[in-house]
């Protein structure tokens, strides 16, 4: 049975600045990384592989340079990595993205029974958290978001049980397979690739699926298939921070000053 882990290569947003003139992201010289949430999705897929013997296929939609990230997933233990890359996929919003990803998953499911689609909760560049649920909707499978623990997978009854982390409580839910799981970062600590695995991955080939392979209707994908358009990107103005109590010696006085300020700003109720 198959787990499909969805990953995205994103710019390291801690290093991205917005150009105040044009309102666009300055991406020049910014390194790309695997979306941090997705590293946890991949790790969870690999753990389920170790435990239940699933096969793990990783898919990513992006430019050819996303190959670097896919190679890393192979070094970590993924069985197969597929890059969904074509000019017609470009400019996609979450809707169009989930169309392409769903298309790829369906294609994979033709050959092997699909058990789980594993996604990170959201990406750090778009921050929408919509693609995972979008895939689940389009696949018509169970949709499990905010998962911080996979309790068990029952291969006989083809169900799984996960724990969801909600505001102030946990919820344990069961769902039939196939299911889409969107994971939180707390779910696990990602592993580190060993050198033999890295060397193996360096020589492995990444499978490329363009639209000749995918045969998607061009009206549903890429810029054309996108329902949203970005009007403007800007950095919100933030009030300048202030260092309090630099001249105060006693910690008690510092604490008092801090509390007074917090009460003033209505950050703390007495």
């Amino acid at each position: 049975m198959l787990i499909v882990a969805c990953v995205k290569q994103v710019p390291d947003t801690t290093q991205v600045k917005v150009d105040p003139e044009t309102g666009t992201l300055i991406r020049e010289g910014v390194p790309f990384i695997m979306n941090p949430y997705d590293t946890h999705a991949l790790e969870e897929s690999l753990r389920l592989k170790d435990k239940y013997g699933f096969r793990v296929a990783v898919i990513s939609m992006g430019p050819p340079s996303a190959e670097v990230t896919l190679r890393k997933t192979l070094a970590l233990g993924a069985d197969e990595a597929i890059l969904l890359s074509d000019r017609v996929f470009g400019g996609a919003d979450t809707l169009a993205t989930s169309m392409v990803l769903t298309g790829a998953i369906k294609k994979l499911a033709e050959k092997e029974e699909l058990a789980i689609v594993m996604c990170g909760r959201q990406t750090i560049d778009g921050d929408t958290a919509q693609v995972g649920p979008g895939i689940a909707t389009r696949l018509g499978c169970s949709q499990l978001t905010l998962v911080d623990r996979v309790e068990e997978v029952d291969l006989k009854s083809k169900t799984l049980k996960v724990r969801r982390k909600l505001e102030g409580r946990h919820e344990v839910v069961s769902a039939p397979l196939p299911a889409m799981i969107a994971v939180l970062r707390e779910i696990n600590t990602p592993r580190y690739p060993s050198v033999p695995m890295r060397l193996e991955a360096e020589d492995s080939s990444i499978i490329l699926w363009d639209n000749k392979v995918m045969q998607m209707d061009e009206a549903t994908i890429g810029l054309k298939g996108s329902a949203t358009q970005v009007r403007k990107i800007f950095s919100p103005e933030r009030a300048k921070g202030e260092i309090l109590g630099g001249e105060i010696d006693k910690p008690e006085d510092s604490a008092r000053l801090l509390i007074t300020r917090m009460v003033e700003k209505d950050l703390l109720s007495l």
Partner: peptide, 13 residues
């Protein structure tokens, strides 16, 4: 430990 086993104190990750 690091290269073959990928095993090391967690803070090093």
């Amino acid at each position: 430990l690091v290269e073959t086993k990928a095993r090391f104190p967690e803070e090093l990750l």
